[in-house]
């Protein structure tokens, strides 16, 4: 999904949601721990329920779902829905399964993330360490570009892709994601580099180091954390995009989200709910995996896109 890590969410001091606080008000006197934990567990169930529904129902025969057993664990466990969703399900007119579209999404997301991250790092470096007039204005204009409703660019972009000969292709989608991803990656690196000691850069300059040498030898080696944040953010956003995929992809260049939507909404005849759930889990798997492996960076990405430099 496309959300916005605008803000300096962390204004009231420098709170980090991943760090517990030493002291603070406690409800404990009024709210027994048992009730507190019961409430927290209840909300855990609420958030996990749809995931449970997807997993459980992707592993059972269709008849068990239509018989009203959506909440139950499978009686007869089966992987057939997963096989069907991956390689034989009907997507639109062809029975290709989701595999080709999964590959489309991968081919689209990797270069788009790589290039937008590199450009973002360079932009952030220039904007913070090579001051010039209008830098803040340029940054503001870049940032505003992150928030525009993309409906505003659909019509001209469709024409532009046509002129460039990229209509309905995966490279066309890469290009679109690159263009609209630069704003956020610049935001991340700019805010990160703003806190980087400028004296080090000046000292290296006096020693005769050039523009790229300073970037390569001084800033880049300490950019690991923000690069991870930026890559995760871009990956999640581009993988989950639907609007650009639906607007600019041809049938055979569709990304995963568009194919999943076609699987679920255009299937004629019997609705194979179990196959739909398996497909949804396939579309969710890459970003969910990233979240589980690098959740801390994911949260930081959501939070720390602090506009305030």
């Amino acid at each position: 999904m496309a959300t916005a890590p605008t803000s300096r969410f962390i204004t009231a001091g420098t709170g980090d949601p991943t760090q517990p606080r030493a002291k603070g008000p406690r409800l404990s006197a009024h709210l027994p721990r048992v009730i507190l934990y019961a409430l927290l567990t209840l909300f855990c169930i609420y958030y996990l329920l749809p995931l449970y529904v997807m997993v459980a129902n992707s592993l059972k025969p269709l008849s068990e779902i239509t018989a009203g057993g959506m909440m139950a664990l499978p009686d007869a466990w089966t992987l057939a829905p997963w096989q069907s969703a991956w390689s034989t399900a009907q997507i639109g007119v062809e029975a290709t399964g989701l595999r080709p579209y999964f590959i489309n999404s991968l081919v689209m997301v990797i270069p788009a993330v790589a290039i937008s991250t590199i450009l973002g790092a360079l932009n952030g470096y220039v904007l913070t360490k090579w001051h010039f007039r209008g830098a803040t204005l340029i940054f503001g204009l870049l940032l505003f570009g992150c928030f525009i409703p993309f409906q505003m660019v659909l019509i001209p972009m469709a024409r532009m892709l046509g002129l460039m000969g990229l209509s309905g292709t995966v490279p066309g989608l890469i290009f679109v994601h690159l263009v609209y991803g630069i704003g956020f990656s610049t935001l991340y690196f700019r805010n990160y580099y703003a806190a980087f000691p400028t004296e080090l850069v000046r000292a290296a300059q006096i020693d005769g180091a050039g523009f790229f040498r300073i970037f390569w030898r001084i800033l880049l080696p300490s950019s690991g954390p923000i690069a991870v944040v930026c890559i995760i953010w871009q990956f999640t956003n581009i993988w989950n995009d639907f609007l650009f995929g639906a607007s600019f992809a041809d049938f055979d260049s569709q990304p995963m989200t568009v194919a999943l939507n076609n699987l679920v909404n255009s299937s004629t005849g019997v609705k194979e709910y179990n196959v739909h759930f398996a497909g949804a889990l396939m579309a969710a798997a890459p970003t969910l995996l990233v979240y589980i492996v690098a959740g801390r960076f994911f949260v930081r990405g959501l939070m720390a896109g602090s506009v305030k430099g």
Binding site: M1, T3, N240, F242, T257, F277, A283, L288, Y291
Partner: peptide, 13 residues
Amino acid sequence: YPMALSFIVTGVA
């Protein structure tokens, strides 16, 4: 974790 999912996945579920 739902934040990591596509709205399409959420919609289907």
